[in-house]
Design a protein around this nucleic acid. Sequence first.
DNA 1: AAACCGGGGCT
DNA 2: AGCCCAGGTTT
Length: 377
Amino acid sequence: MKQQTPRNIEVQRKQELLNRIAPGLLTWYDKSRRSLPWREEPTPYRVWVSEIMLQQTRVEAVKPYFARFMERLPDIEALAEVDDDELLKLWEGLGYYSRARNLKAAAQQIVTEYGGEMPSDYRELLKLKGIGSYTAGAVSSIAFKQPNPAVDGNVLRVIARLLEDNSDISDQSVKKRVEDDLRPVMPKDRPGDFNQALMELGATVCLPNGAPKCSNCPWQEFCLVGLHGTWQQYPQKAAKKARTIEDKTILVIRTSRQVVLRKRPKKGLLAGLYEFPAMDKKASLEEVREWLKKQGVEAVRMEKLPESKHIFTHKEWHMTGYQVLVDELEPMGQDESLLFVETQEIEKNYPIPSAFAAYSAYLKIQTGIQKMKGTTL
DNA sequence: AAACCGGGGCT
DNA sequence: AGCCCAGGTTT
């Protein structure tokens, strides 16, 4: 018999609330669920790829990428063998590119260590590159009906509000605790639907920004913020660190048909993607000339390009640009990361991050115009 | 535990 | 301008 300390009473009260969430939630989900491509045909491979794409990424953004990805790489074997550049091209613009590299690495793991079949066990899934507790829970429950929780940002928010829990949900220990709290209340016959329903509730009713639509919620009778009108106080989250600002000068060095690209390092920001050569400062025309001279580039003409800003999670790029027209693109210095690319081939073969969108678009327009007029430069 | 890793839509 | 998004890995 447990002692009736205030702490134990609080824990018991919380458990009683959690015990009530499943039935109404599943009924609501059956009525309100969105039809999503990976939801209608939940094979292990499709569920896995969709869950990776959906990490920190909205459903609407994922849809076109998912369709194209499945068409080109319909199974684990195809993914395990895809060329790195082609893979990144399929991921271009989606962000967090390590997700794509990890996806391929995990596919190779599955081929060599699991006979090409996606493992169904939570513990085995956790061994695959790019799969953490959330994704292991999602894949094992949705594709294999294993009763494991899948706690994402939606679930953390929904549960914090349900319980008026003051915990900082950006703290990793809170996620672990919510997983432990949910495991015993999962309906054993529908674990995948339970997880998806929790997320769906967060995405469509218990909204992350703006007022929750409590009149549509299956938990109206017992949700504490609903009863108390306190949704604005939950969830609690630690303040984020300020972004640092980096100045850059982007150089679009080109002839009438070719342009200089540079492959980024294998690790770090935008790893393995292609970019325009750049200087790590806001450079004057004279400084650009000097940089070009060091690379052995002789400019026929230079034009200033518009300034542009790109915001990452943890830094901002403040960019300016120059177009550098040259007569010929022959060996440029000793920098092996530099390559000359047919402008027309960029769209097909070279993944360039959205950070350079202003300059990519400029190049495309310039070369497009050239093509139309049939002129050179 | 904290930092790193993208991009876009909404307020 | 700041928030968040079907998170995971590295340090």
